[in-house]
Write a protein that binds this DNA or RNA. Structure first.
Lengths: 115, 115
DNA sequence: TTAACGTATGAGTATTTGTTCATATGTTTA
DNA sequence: TAAACATATGAACAAATACTCATACGTTAA
């Protein structure tokens, strides 16, 4: 079983100098997706259960349209997937990285608060 | 030695339901900091060596003022630290989480590109 | 103290971004 | 097919953001 802690350091060590602009841009775009409270709430809502768009709207107390717009962004970045069930669309977290990126964000914040 | 992979999952499991708004906002604010190409470049510049503000400006080919503004944001979020050496300020990465968050962002992007 | 250097910061501006509103698309039921 | 339901999407607007310019602050050397 792989340990991501070491893996993380390995991967950065292998980068020689500055990564190229396209890669940097892709990576910062990915983090930008996590950098919004609404999208963060959606990810957490989906963490426990997959949900329909309306269910998410109700859960967050926001308009369906706003949620749909944000779900598109999450999907374009491969952070959520969806499938149709009759009239409704079910969304779910798509990737293990979502958990790990979120968790490390939380750890950093927790440490800040404990200081 | 702790394995962050498991740790990450543990930490999310312990969150019961939706984290409170303040925490969610703090976390998304943290990711927002990573969600900018200039700040990402600064972090990479500092990855290999600590550097002065002017050195970073030269390295990225950007104005000193722009870099200073971004360094302030990075420092306010405890991602970099600094110390004075005579007239110059030396900036450095301050936290192990920086490496890990960056690395996981890269992993996610790499996987996307390999598909 | 004054001048020079390195950095920080406030104001102004252009761009990006998240939401709402209206409406289009797609699916099921009558 | 028409109506009802669920979701997606484009336009418009307000708020946030990143850069530039000008200038202030802090340190060192003359």
């Amino acid at each position: 079983m792989k340990c991501d802690h070491d893996h993380a350091k390995d991967m950065l060590k292998h980068l020689d100098g500055m990564p190229d602009d396209v890669l940097l841009c892709d990576v910062s775009d990915l983090f930008k997706v996590f950098g919004d409270t609404t999208r963060m709430k959606i990810l957490f809502a989906l963490y426990k259960n997959e949900m329909s768009v309306n269910a998410i709207s109700d859960c967050l107390g926001m308009q369906q349209s706003a949620i749909s717009h944000q779900l598109k962004i999450l999907k374009d970045n491969n952070l959520v997937g969806n499938r149709r069930e009759g009239k409704t669309m079910i969304y779910f977290l798509s990737d293990d990285h979502v958990y790990q990126i979120l968790a490390q964000g939380f750890e950093h914040i927790m440490e800040e608060h404990d200081l």
